[in-house]
């Protein structure tokens, strides 16, 4: 469960939000409106005001690294800090996740420089999921993927939600928003508007 109270991301109006376990919020709006800014604010990566809770965790009362381990933000541009893929994986067995995303298990020993953008995007999701966060903040997780790969990623996300995780996903794709979202957030001109699924239709 994710609860935001009077969250003020940089340059945006304050807003409240409650998202139940297993629920998904999709975020849309024109380019530059502040979709990424919202995710970064929830992850506490940019200075922001307001309170956020994930389950029993209260953001202001725990350290930022502990918060981010539970509220994992996966940025649109994936970052790599070592030469090979496996150096980026936290503890755990990435095998099942790689299978679910149609990635070759051998890719763990590949140099990062050899990966395609789509492979990087999926591997960034794998390394975030491996830590089993309660809340997942995804910034356009399928932007570099074809239809089939998009389907597998969506399936993995829904699967993860069915195990009780809460997901916030930025997407440009209205159909994807309809497929995944229980609630819908639209940001435009500094204003944040939250609609339930029914109201959004």
């Amino acid at each position: 469960m994710l609860t935001l109270t009077q969250l003020v991301p940089r340059g945006l109006a304050p807003f409240d939000l409650t998202l139940e376990d297993g629920a998904c919020l999709t975020v849309s709006g024109p380019s530059g409106a502040g979709k990424t800014v919202i995710l970064r604010a929830i992850a506490d990566l940019d200075a922001n005001t307001g309170e956020a809770r994930a389950g029993s965790l209260i953001r202001s009362q725990i350290s930022a690294p502990v918060w981010r381990k539970n509220v994992a933000y996966v940025p649109a541009d994936t970052g790599w800090w070592a030469d090979h893929v496996d150096s980026h994986m936290p503890e755990g067995d990435p095998g099942p996740l790689l299978d679910a995303l149609d990635l070759d298990r051998a890719c763990l020993s590949w140099p990062v420089a050899q990966l395609s953008t789509g492979e990087r995007q999926r591997l960034a999701l794998v390394r975030a999921l491996l830590a089993e966060p309660d809340v997942l903040l995804l910034d356009e997780p399928t932007s570099a993927l074809d239809i089939d790969a998009t389907k597998t990623v969506e399936r993995l996300i829904t699967d993860y939600m069915s195990r009780g995780a809460t997901v916030v996903i930025v997407t440009h794709d209205d159909e994807q928003a309809q497929r995944l979202g229980d609630q819908h957030l639209r940001v435009d001109g500094g204003k944040v508007e939250i609609l339930s699924r029914e109201a959004g239709q």
């Binding site: 990566l45 933000y73 970052g79 790599w80 800090w81």
Partner: peptide, 19 residues
Amino acid sequence: RDRVAIEAQLCLGATRWQA
């Protein structure tokens, strides 16, 4: 130069000194 790589580690719960 390595902003993206540093933030990728911060996102996964690294401290600023680790990242």
